[in-house]
Every structure is written in structure tokens, then in C-alpha cells.
């Protein structure tokens, strides 16, 4: 088994210099910083209009282009940072906004539709590598980048990025909220290597623990979920439990 990177063995060279345009407490800055440490110097970055440059980088604007490149097997790593909305234009709903979340253009009812499962769509391209990561677990992200760099074709990373203004929380709680998303089983860390699915890091440990934090704990940290009713939360909890029952079954 590959040795897991720790905060002590993480490379100290920095590629992200002070002065990014990210907001205070933005999870993206962490993913960016740690991701570039894993990618190293010999890297060419292409950044579409997004929070850092001024995201609708992927959903839905560029998904056709990404799908085309993935189908052709172009050799590159695609990092989709998922802040669950069009955040650089002021937090409007996007395909990956979760159900029930209040956004700038779903102000009174919250989003009525399900979140689009983009890593599953990318996995359907039969890529050599698909990973779901979180800014709250940067070492998991680091190791996954290292894992995939030798693999052929398109590699896809989905990174859950807590967004203080878009999600409605005090910037200091970003990591805590990112972790709660994982600990509640609401957002899972995994990798799919040549078609083989495997939970990683904290999500992997949850399978051993067989105990999820109630999802309500996650929802109440963010003002965007304030419209969710108990019935809606119970419904979401049930879906999470069903998903995890599947993980537990696989484990047995």
C-alpha cells in the first residue's frame, strides 16, 4: 500500500503566491495550493472564468467540451471545484447546487431539483481515473493527484469547496463544514481507478465505524439551507442511509 502523505511529509515549496482573488476562507485556495504541490513545477494550468480569475467553468457551459475531450482520451487532469453554485457571479443556482439550497435566483423556495452527479457522468466515460475530493481533506487530494499522474488519458477530479458567501457561514468554519459534509455521508470521498470504485480517507473510515453524523448537523451550519423542512431533511437522511447501506453491503 502506498504511504499516505502527512502534513509533515507534504512538500514545502509553494506555487500559489499571496494575493489570489479568492475570498477569505475560500476552500479553493487550499485545494489550489495543495493540488499544485502534488502536480509540481512542470504543469500548465488552464483556468476558465472562475472565482480565482475574476465558475461556470463546467456546469453547464463547458460540460460538452469536457465530455468530448474525455471521450477522445486527451491527456490532462480536469479539476472541477464544486462550490455548488455560480459563485463568482453572486451565488446563483447551478447544476450542482443541492436540493433545498437558497441561491440568488432561487431566493424564496430554494433549489427544487437534485444535484447533478458530475463525477458519475465523468465515470461513465470510462476514464482511467475519477476522484471525489474535498478542500477539507487536502492530503487525500494530494495523494490522489499523485496516484493518477501516471495514468493515461483524461483524469477527472471533483473537489467539494465550501464557499463562505455562497453557503452563508462565517469564513472560519469552512474546514469544519467541509468535514461535516463527509462525516454525515452527504458528500463522499472516493476514487475510481480503471473502473474500480473505492472510498478513501474519512469516507473509508466511516464504513468501519458504521456511524454517520445526522445530516441535520451539516445543514444547520449554513444559512442557505434554512428553508429545509424536517420532512425534507428526513427524506435526504433516508437517501444518505440507503447509499451507505450499499457501501456497507459491499464491505461485507
Amino acid at each position: 500500500m502506498q504511504v499516505k502523505t502527512t502534513i509533515l511529509s507534504l512538500p514545502t515549496e509553494e506555487f500559489v503566491h499571496p494575493g489570489t482573488r479568492a475570498c477569505t476562507g475560500c476552500g479553493l485556495a487550499i485545494a489550489y495550493r495543495v493540488g499544485l504541490k502534488a502536480l509540481g513545477k512542470d504543469t500548465m494550468l488552464v483556468v476558465p472564468p472562475s472565482c480565482l480569475t475574476v465558475l461556470q467553468g463546467l456546469f453547464p457551459v463547458a460540460s460538452t467540451a469536457l465530455s468530448g475531450a474525455a471521450e477522445r482520451g486527451d491527456n490532462f487532469i480536469y479539476f472541477c471545484y464544486d462550490n455548488e453554485g455560480y459563485m463568482n457571479t453572486g451565488a446563483q443556482r447551478s447544476g450542482t447546487t443541492p436540493i433545498g439550497a437558497i441561491t440568488a435566483n432561487t431566493p424564496f423556495k430554494g433549489k427544487l431539483q437534485q444535484k447533478k452527479d458530475v463525477p458519475a457522468i465523468m465515470a461513465a466515460h470510462k476514464l482511467s481515473y475519477v476522484a471525489a475530493c474535498s478542500a477539507a481533506y487536502p492530503l487525500d487530494l494530494f495523494d490522489k493527484i499523485k496516484n493518477c499522474m501516471h495514468l493515461p488519458g483524461t483524469k477527472y477530479f471533483h473537489i467539494h469547496i465550501p464557499c463562505p458567501p455562497g453557503w452563508g457561514y462565517d469564513p472560519r468554519y469552512g474546514i469544519k463544514i467541509g468535514r461535516l459534509a463527509v462525516e454525515t455521508g452527504y458528500y463522499d470521498l472516493y476514487e475510481i481507478v480503471n473502473g474500480e470504485f473505492k472510498l478513501t480517507a474519512a469516507s473509508e473510515k466511516l464504513v468501519e465505524k458504521r456511524k454517520l453524523v445526522p445530516v441535520q448537523e451539516y445543514f444547520r451550519t449554513q444559512s442557505r439551507f434554512r428553508l429545509l423542512t424536517d420532512a425534507q431533511i428526513a427524506d435526504i437522511q433516508q437517501k444518505i442511509d440507503e447509499k451507505w447501506a450499499g457501501y456497507y453491503n459491499k464491505d461485507e
Partner: peptide, 16 residues
């Protein structure tokens, strides 16, 4: 020769 999935991508590839 890059057989892209749209004209938007065709020119995007040329730009890159």
C-alpha cells in the same frame, strides 16, 4: 487532427 465534439471546441483547440 482533433475530431472535436463541437465548433466551439474546434476553435478552442485552435486557440490553445
Amino acid at each position: 487532427y482533433i475530431p472535436v465534439e463541437s465548433e466551439h471546441s474546434a476553435l478552442a483547440v485552435c486557440i490553445a
